[in-house]
C-alpha cells in the first residue's frame, strides 16, 4: 500500500494566537489525525464551531498548527515555499470574491499564477491546464461570459475551474454548496465526485449531512475540535453519532441505493438542546 496523499498527524491549533479580532468564538482543533488516499473524497461534517473549517484552513496553510504535522505526499506542507505549496494544494474558500465584470476565462487563467513568473507569463502548459480545467468543469462555453451574469451553480463551477487550473493533487473546498439551491447543489457535488474519480484528493467541509453521506468516500465527523468518527458513511453514520454531533434525535433511513439518510425525529431535539446547535438543520 502506497503512502497516503494527505496525512494529518496529531494536529492541534487554536485561533487564540492569531491576529485580528477573530478571537471570540475561537474554534480550535485538538489532536486531529486523518489520512486520505489519492482520489479520495473526504467530507467533514459537524456542528458550527466544531473546528472543521479551521482544520481545512490549517491544511491550506492559512493557519499554522500549534503542534502536529500535515504531510502532503510525505512532505510537511509548511516546509514548502508558498509557490510550491500552491502547485500542490488548492483551496476554494467559502465566499470567494472576484472583481466586478471579470470574464470567466480571466478568472480561470489566474489559477495558473503559481506556475508563472515575470519571464514565464503564459506557456503552452498554461494553455493546456486552463483548457483541461474548463473542459473538466464543463465551463468552456461560459468562457467569455462575465462571472456575475452566471447562476450560482455555474459560478461555483468556474471557481472550481480556477482551482483546477492550479493542477494540484489536493483540493480543499469550504462549504461549496452552502449558498445554492438543490439543483445547483447536485450540479456542484456531481462535479466534485467526478474530480475525485480522476485522482484528485478532495477534502470538503459540508453542512448538509444527507449530501455528505451521499457523496463521501470517507465521512469525518468533528465535534469540539476533535474527530468523533471517520470512515465510510454507511459504517459511521449512526443514530448515536448524530446525537453526539448535533444533540438531535434522528432516524437513519436507507435510500434505494443503500446510502444512509438522516432525518430528525419529530420533536426529536433533546431537552438540553441549546438553540445554537439546531439552527443549521436543513433536512427536509
Amino acid at each position: 500500500m502506497s503512502e497516503p496523499r494527505l496525512a494529518i498527524q496529531n494536529v492541534s491549533l487554536s485561533y487564540a494566537n492569531g491576529r485580528g479580532g477573530k478571537t471570540d468564538a475561537a474554534p480550535t482543533v485538538k489532536e486531529v489525525s486523518l489520512q486520505a488516499r489519492p482520489g479520495e473524497l473526504m467530507i467533514i461534517v459537524g456542528p458550527n464551531g466544531c473546528g472543521k473549517s479551521t482544520l481545512l484552513r490549517a491544511v491550506a496553510r492559512l493557519h499554522r498548527p500549534d503542534s502536529g504535522r500535515i504531510l502532503l505526499e510525505g512532505e510537511d506542507v509548511w516546509s514548502l515555499s508558498r509557490k510550491q505549496a500552491a502547485t500542490r494544494l488548492a483551496l476554494l474558500p467559502q465566499t470567494p470574491t472576484a472583481p466586478e465584470g471579470i470574464r470567466v476565462a480571466d478568472l480561470v487563467r489566474h489559477g495558473r499564477h503559481p506556475h508563472q513568473g515575470l519571464f514565464r507569463q503564459w506557456t503552452s502548459a498554461d494553455e493546456d491546464a486552463v483548457r483541461r480545467a474548463l473542459l473538466a468543469t464543463d465551463t468552456a462555453d461560459l468562457m467569455d461570459a462575465p462571472l456575475d451574469h452566471l447562476s450560482g451553480g455555474q459560478r461555483q463551477r468556474c471557481w472550481l475551474a480556477m482551482a483546477l487550473a492550479q493542477e494540484t493533487n489536493l483540493l480543499l473546498l469550504d462549504e461549496p454548496i452552502s449558498m445554492l439551491d438543490l439543483g445547483h447543489q447536485v450540479e456542484v457535488l456531481n462535479l466534485v465526485r467526478d474530480l475525485s474519480a480522476k485522482g484528485i484528493t478532495i477534502m470538503m467541509v459540508l453542512h448538509d449531512l444527507i449530501a455528505a453521506a451521499r457523496y463521501a468516500d470517507t465521512l469525518t465527523a468533528m465535534r469540539e475540535g476533535r474527530v468523533v468518527a471517520s470512515g465510510p458513511p454507511r459504517e459511521i453514520l449512526t443514530r448515536d453519532m448524530v446525537r453526539e454531533l448535533y444533540n438531535v434525535d434522528a432516524h437513519i433511513l436507507s435510500d434505494p441505493d443503500g446510502n444512509p439518510v438522516v432525518t430528525p425525529a419529530v420533536g426529536g431535539a433533546l431537552s438540553s438542546l441549546s438553540p445554537s446547535n439546531s439552527k443549521e438543520q436543513s433536512y427536509v
Binding site: 496553510r61 492559512l62 508558498r82 488548492a90 489566474h110 499564477h113
Partner: peptide, 21 residues
Amino acid sequence: VLARQLTLLQFGEDTAASLGL
C-alpha cells in the same frame, strides 16, 4: 510588480494566499 500581485488580492486574501501570494 506590486500591481500584478494586487490583482490576485482582488479574489480575497484566502484565495490569493492559496495561489502562492
